[in-house]
Simulated assay, not measured.
Amino acid sequence: MSESEITAYVERSQSLIDQALQMDEENTKVKLIQPLIKLLGWDMFSPEVELEYPMQIGRGNTRADHALLIETAPVVFIEAKGCDSTLTDADRCQLTSYMRQKGVDWGLLTTGSQFETFRRRKDSSRPDARSVRRVRARSMV
């Protein structure tokens, strides 16, 4: 991925956000998150990217918005929220519980304009995920 590709992605995303009166979660996934996954080198049409990755937590079933897989094992979970929303502690807990449940080391929580990266800690008796980086795009809502 080149600097010009990153710049083009950011400018395109900014334009989409500026033009949208509201961008719910589904539009954010398709218009902002999936192009980011492609930019990072993942093929959206291959088995290495799974949409709505299913898992069981407790007695219930749930799904991570995107799972990036290597040899059928998830290595990154991406949890998207609408661009018209703000990331909350409940959103962070949702993603980190997915990571713990499946032993996934990396997670990305995003609205398309806010990005928070998580890394699963393995240095304690109860591995937990913690935020390692928060980024908010300069003029994105």
Rank of each mutant, 00 (worst) to 15 (best):
residue 1 M to I: 01
residue 4 S to Y: 07
residue 6 I to H: 06
residue 7 T to W: 02
residue 8 A to C: 07
residue 9 Y to S: 07
residue 9 Y to W: 13
residue 10 V to W: 06
residue 14 Q to P: 00
residue 14 Q to D: 13
residue 17 I to Y: 01
residue 22 Q to S: 15
residue 24 D to Y: 09
residue 27 N to G: 13
residue 27 N to T: 12
residue 27 N to E: 12
residue 32 L to P: 04
residue 32 L to Q: 07
residue 34 Q to R: 00
residue 36 L to W: 08
residue 36 L to E: 09
residue 37 I to E: 12
residue 37 I to W: 07
residue 38 K to L: 00
residue 38 K to E: 09
residue 39 L to M: 08
residue 42 W to F: 15
residue 43 D to T: 07
residue 43 D to G: 10
residue 45 F to G: 14
residue 45 F to R: 15
residue 45 F to Y: 15
residue 46 S to N: 08
residue 47 P to V: 02
residue 47 P to E: 11
residue 48 E to R: 09
residue 48 E to V: 03
residue 49 V to R: 00
residue 50 E to A: 09
residue 50 E to I: 08
residue 56 Q to I: 06
residue 58 G to E: 08
residue 60 G to D: 07
residue 60 G to F: 04
residue 61 N to Q: 10
residue 62 T to P: 06
residue 68 L to T: 06
residue 68 L to E: 05
residue 70 I to V: 11
residue 71 E to T: 06
residue 73 A to W: 01
residue 74 P to F: 03
residue 77 F to I: 03
residue 78 I to A: 01
residue 79 E to C: 01
residue 81 K to S: 01
residue 84 D to I: 02
residue 85 S to L: 08
residue 87 L to D: 02
residue 88 T to K: 12
residue 92 R to M: 01
residue 93 C to Q: 15
residue 94 Q to P: 09
residue 94 Q to D: 10
residue 96 T to I: 13
residue 98 Y to V: 09
residue 101 Q to Y: 01
residue 102 K to C: 13
residue 103 G to D: 14
residue 104 V to I: 11
residue 105 D to H: 13
residue 106 W to G: 06
residue 106 W to R: 14
residue 109 L to Q: 02
residue 110 T to K: 05
residue 111 T to G: 05
residue 111 T to Q: 06
residue 113 S to D: 04
residue 115 F to L: 05
residue 118 F to E: 06
residue 118 F to Y: 15
residue 122 K to S: 15
residue 122 K to M: 14
residue 123 D to P: 05
residue 123 D to W: 07
residue 124 S to G: 12
residue 125 S to D: 14
residue 130 R to M: 11
residue 131 S to F: 00
residue 131 S to R: 10
residue 133 R to T: 04
residue 134 R to V: 12
residue 138 R to I: 03
residue 141 V to D: 07
